[in-house]
């Protein structure tokens, strides 16, 4: 078992309740949930690998492929929708040549949608890594993306 996983597991008890927190920690460490991680978690928490996959694939947070260097999340909350969030997503999909939930071939960007970032009054918003951009327009976003390598 790789050391980081061992370290993460040691911070949690062996109760099934810890499954989601463990997965969250693993994703924080690696950016995604690998088959190897699932195997380690399975042995520690005594939950079958299949069940772990079933649980993790239920939640939008977890991904099973390596993420891009930068994560672009388009908010599609109601406020953002009525102010053109969907258009932003379309533009990104077209611009980056990937679908929502995928990563560009050069691993530069991973694109996701989020239900709501809670910044509705500043809609539409887009989150790139930890930064939240408010009142985004198609052209502003195009410019913004250039800053991320």
């Amino acid at each position: 078992m790789p050391e980081p996983i061992r370290t993460i597991l040691a911070k949690h008890s062996r109760e099934p309740d810890e499954l989601i927190p463990v997965l969250q920690d693993v994703q924080k460490e690696y950016g995604y949930i690998s088959a190897e991680s699932v195997r380690g978690i399975s042995k520690y928490l005594r939950i079958s690998e299949n069940t772990i996959y079933g649980v993790s694939s239920f939640y939008a947070q977890f991904r099973f492929t390596e993420p891009g260097r930068h994560s672009v999340k388009v908010c599609l909350g109601t406020a953002c929708h009525v102010r053109g969030g969907a258009t932003l997503l379309e533009m990104l999909e077209r611009g980056l040549g990937i679908h929502c939930g995928e990563t560009t071939e050069d691993k530069r960007f991973g694109l996701d949608r989020v239900a709501c970032l809670g910044c509705c009054a500043l809609s539409p918003v887009v989150q790139i890594d930890k930064e939240i951009y408010s009142r985004v327009t198609v052209n502003k976003l195009t410019e913004q993306l250039k800053e991320y390598e």
């Binding site: 088959a35 699932v38 939950i47 079958s48 690998e49 299949n50 069940t51 772990i52 996959y53 079933g54 649980v55 694939s57 239920f58 099973f64």
Partner: peptide, 26 residues
């Protein structure tokens, strides 16, 4: 624990982790 629901909503399917065969999945 070989079978689990996977994904959710209309995408829900049933099977083992990571598209494994049942043999691989125990």
């Amino acid at each position: 624990g070989t079978l689990s629901f996977k994904q959710r909503g209309k995408l829900t399917t049933i099977g083992p982790a990571f598209d494994r065969t049942h043999l691989e999945a125990g």
